[in-house]
Design a protein around this nucleic acid. Structure first.
Lengths: 105, 105
DNA sequence: CAATATATAGAACTTAGTTCTATATATCAA
DNA sequence: TTGATATATAGAACTAAGTTCTATATATTG
């Protein structure tokens, strides 16, 4: 199964870098840049994007909201372009986009 | 590797329930209750909890913040009890707690 | 010494996220 | 048919999360 390959590699790489850091072979700045370069870049989501994403996962706004731990009204507002998801919400939407709803169950 | 077993099961179960729903064998209400019962319950995090969690992952506030897609100041405020993480932030903290930082890379 | 990483502290600001009510359909069971 | 529920839109009002900024302090590193 290749589905979790990426995160396992990330975990291993981080552990290696972390160990190298502890032993003093790489400094904190390098460690920081390493970590940040590992992070999947996060993009904006249009109202349309969000609705498509939710429909791809075949769930109602209520269920989608429950997965993200936000209110159903928030999801509704996102999909109508009345509110823009920010910070941590964008992160969760990115995770769902890349790894599916069940990855954040 | 057992690390992703849980989410694979979740995915499969959701797909099965989803198919049963499409075929009309279970209604939307049941589908909703099914999905919500699948979600890992989310609890509050004290300032201490968050600091411990971050230290377990061996990263600075800055890096931790980058993973969650929040500002470093927010993490600092959480750890000092000045602000309480809410909704989507709590969800991300729960994911990190259960599956590790790399699971949300 | 100078520069950077890390973390605390506090203040001011913006707006995301919540909650509430109302409206409208569709589905489903009695 | 009727009543109850699921789903979704709409708008208003409120709270506080999250952001950004500045200042301070310490430790580390070139």
């Amino acid at each position: 199964m290749t589905r979790t390959y990426k995160s396992d590699v990330s975990a291993s790489l981080h552990e290696l870098a972390s160990d190298l850091h502890e032993v003093g072979l790489i400094d904190k700045a390098t460690m920081r840049h390493f970590d940040e370069s590992c992070l999947t870049p996060i993009h904006e989501f249009t109202a349309e994007d969000i609705r498509k994403l939710r429909e791809r996962e075949q769930v109602s706004q209520t269920i989608f909201a429950a997965y993200l731990n936000v209110s159903k009204d928030s999801v509704s507002q996102w999909e109508r372009g009345q509110k823009q998801p920010a910070g941590p919400s964008l992160k969760l939407l990115s995770l769902v986009e890349r790894k599916g709803l069940s990855s954040i169950a």
